[in-house]
């Protein structure tokens, strides 16, 4: 109690301290995210129009109101791209999360061998850049370089077409699965390890099978981790870009605006329509935001309902 004057100092300090710690992040965040986002929103209301007539009249940037938003929302290709991404997500997200959960549970099975090796092996693709992963699978899909096709040929079966309509979605989802399953597996596995074993010791003594323990005890307990990985998968899915973009030159079935981000890239970098790209991005970001909030709310009620 003698430290009354000294006690004031920490309080004074702590008012400014968090801001000092956060300053580098705030400055960089402002410079490289807030300002560019603000500028992008500004751009989304602007477009190029011709100044001074003639066939080679110069383009100048002017205010175009909601034209860009209207164009994005009424563009059938953009809307179709959103649809394709959702369809792709229906394949990819459950398969990535399902397999990640399966591997995590298997790794968590008592007495299983080669745990370290398999865990590392399954995680390894995470280190392979998305573009390289796509290029590599592209080679594995193309008829003349595909090992599956080589085998099919040996068996006198026809060439397999990995790029034809429904198969294409699986081919793309497979790349996501390959790259993403390890990362998600590690998250689920570590949260499995965080469960005190005492919780299912009792069940084991009662003679419960590992399958039963997994289904009834482990999965409910890792549900929060599943929701989190699911949420990031949804965000990642809606921002799908490098896989279809890398495979596009190899196939005739992937159009140049196959997913929303390809469309945005196209407008921004090929068609010199930054305004249109910005508007389409704002629409996409808002869509992701709304979807994430809805999912979070839905699952929060279900997984944490009892506690919250």
């Amino acid at each position: 109690m003698t430290a009354n004057p000294a006690g004031r100092r920490p309080r004074l300090r702590s008012a400014a301290t968090p801001w000092l710690f956060a300053t580098p992040a705030i400055v960089l965040f402002t410079l490289f995210l807030i300002i560019p986002i603000g500028y992008a929103i500004y751009l989304s209301f602007r477009g190029f129009r011709i100044d001074g007539g003639g066939a080679f009249g110069r383009r100048v940037q002017t205010f175009v109101g909601f034209d860009n938003y209207l164009a994005a929302l009424t563009d059938p290709e953009y809307v179709a791209g959103l649809g394709r991404v959702l369809l792709y997500g229906l394949f990819s997200i459950p398969s990535v999360l399902g397999l990640a959960l399966l591997f995590a549970l298997l790794l968590d099975t008592p007495r299983v061998r080669a745990r370290g090796f398999t865990r590392t092996a399954i995680f390894l693709p995470y280190a392979v850049p998305g573009v390289i992963a796509s290029l590599l699978w592209g080679f594995l899909y193309l008829p003349s370089t595909s090992p599956l096709n080589y085998l099919a040929k040996q068996l006198h079966a026809g060439p397999l077409d990995f790029f034809s309509f429904p198969t294409l979605y699986f081919s793309l989802a497979n790349i996501a699965l390959w790259s993403g399953v390890g990362f998600n597996m590690i998250i689920i596995f570590t949260s499995l390890r965080a469960i005190p074993t005492s919780i299912y010791e009792a069940a084991r003594i009662d003679g419960a099978s590992e399958l039963q323990i997994a289904w009834r005890i482990k999965i409910p307990l890792v549900a929060p981790a599943l929701v989190l990985t699911g949420l990031f998968s949804v965000i990642g899915t809606l921002q799908l870009y490098s896989e279809p973009a890398t495979l596009r030159p190899m196939s005739t079935t992937i159009s140049s605006t196959w997913v929303p981000l390809m469309k945005i890239y196209q407008e921004a970098f090929m068609n010199d329509n930054l305004g249109g790209a910005a508007a389409a991005s704002v629409v996409l970001a808002l869509g992701i935001l709304v979807l994430s909030m809805l999912l979070l709310r839905f699952f929060q009620r279900r997984t944490f309902g009892d506690n919250a």
Binding site: L142, S144, T145
Partner: peptide, 16 residues
Amino acid sequence: KVEPLLTPEWNAQVND
């Protein structure tokens, strides 16, 4: 043959 130019596939076909 409906096939983009200069893909690994196209290259293989030209080689073959």
